[in-house]
Simulated scan of single mutants.
Amino acid sequence: MASCIIAYLGPMGSYTYEAAQAFAKDAQISDAIFEPCASITTVFSQENQKEKLPRYMIIPLENSTSGDVYETYKLLYLHAFRVIALKRLEIAHVLIGLVGSSCSKIKTVYSHPQALMQVTDYTKKRQLATIPYFSTADAVGFISKQKDLTIGAIASTAATNYYPNTLVLDDAISNNEHNYTRFLVLRAAADTSESAFFFEKSQQEAQLFLLFELEHDASGQLSDILTILFTFGINMTSIKSRPIEGQIFEYFFVVEALMTKLLSEQQQYEIFLQLQEKTARVIYNVY
């Protein structure tokens, strides 16, 4: 019997599927059920009806070339999420076509919008028409069912393993040769408007993933938040603000940080309580 479910964005052959496989390997999970999802929203909401098993969710957070995945941040705001890990995956885009085609024959390429943004130098140089598709792997699946040697897909080499009659026509086509995406590994998302504290384990250099919303009628709150983190020896590595959907120029914040001190669960909870006093809502994740 399977030990858990790992839900991920896209079909087999997508980059998120590669990240899901990497997580399973690192976590020494050999008998997981891999559950493909058509959208990030589905990753959060889809429940397995047959098995009552632990459920992990793998979603893209940001790319080093094209930036943040905005849908991910929007859904993180709407859910109480437990961060288990962050996985970094090298994104090596290639041009995929049908058997019998060649680079010179390709006139139009399909792929996920983020992937198309990451190969603009290549597509402009070759004057290729670009058509957005659901995911990189879905794009390969689409062209595999056609008989048109002039269409191709931008995806990973691994995608050709899952779709017959396809092959790599050109490689190393990304704008940036150092192209990486970070993926969040989450557990137990649930709709909530309340604050939440999640503590995975106490260890040196543990990671903090913090989401919070400030009271809108008070000043100096952001400074107060940063002071609390500094006081406990928490080294902030990233801070971002994102608009709250449905609100006019109101924002929530996401902070990533590194624990420079070994703090117990009780000490971490004290930080959470102090942050809670200074915010309208806070989701505190230590992993």
Score class of each variant (00 low, 15 high):
H178F: 10
A189S: 15
T181L: 06
V119L: 02
Q276C: 07
V254E: 11
Y17N: 11
L98D: 04
A38P: 02
I40T: 02
D31P: 10
Q203R: 10
F81M: 11
P164H: 11
Q46F: 06
A155N: 01
C103F: 11
Q266N: 12
S66G: 04
Y70C: 07
D191E: 13
Q221R: 15
T130A: 05
F230C: 10
K201W: 03
G220Y: 06
I244H: 05
K25M: 05
V83L: 12
F44G: 03
H79L: 09
I283V: 15
S135V: 01
F209W: 11
P113T: 09
Q46E: 13
A19W: 02
G246T: 07
D170Q: 11
V168W: 07
K52L: 12
A19Y: 01
I59R: 04
I58L: 14
E35Y: 15
E62V: 06
M259N: 04
S156P: 02
A158L: 13
H112Q: 08
F249D: 15
V99Q: 13
D26V: 06
L98R: 14
T279A: 04
F81S: 15
A172I: 12
A7K: 15
F23S: 06
Y56V: 03
N165D: 15
P113H: 08
T150M: 01
Y110K: 08
Q127S: 12
L214W: 03
R126I: 00
I33Y: 04
Y133D: 07
D138L: 05
N161P: 01
L275M: 10
S264I: 00
K278V: 03
H112G: 01
K107C: 08
R281Y: 03
L229R: 06
Y269M: 11
A137D: 00
D68A: 12
I283T: 14
I33V: 12
S202Y: 00
Q274P: 02
I225Q: 00
N176L: 11
Y269W: 13
S195P: 04
N235L: 06
S66R: 05
L167V: 12
F230T: 14
L262R: 14
S64L: 02
P11K: 08
Y15K: 05
L210D: 00
S264R: 07
F183D: 02
V109F: 08
N176R: 07
V99W: 01
N285M: 10
M236C: 11
A22G: 06
P243H: 08
A190W: 05
M1K: 13
R182A: 08
C4M: 08
L98M: 12
A159S: 13
I143A: 06
A20F: 07
G100D: 04
S104G: 14
L273S: 14
A196I: 09
V43A: 11
K147M: 08
T130R: 11
E200H: 14
L116C: 05
K25I: 12
S144Y: 09
A19L: 04
D191L: 15
G220A: 09
F252D: 04
I225Y: 01
E90P: 13
A85D: 15
A280R: 15
F183E: 08
Q207W: 05
S174N: 15
F212N: 00
F44K: 07
A80M: 08
A206K: 07
Y133V: 00
N179R: 05
A2G: 02
S264N: 06
K25L: 14
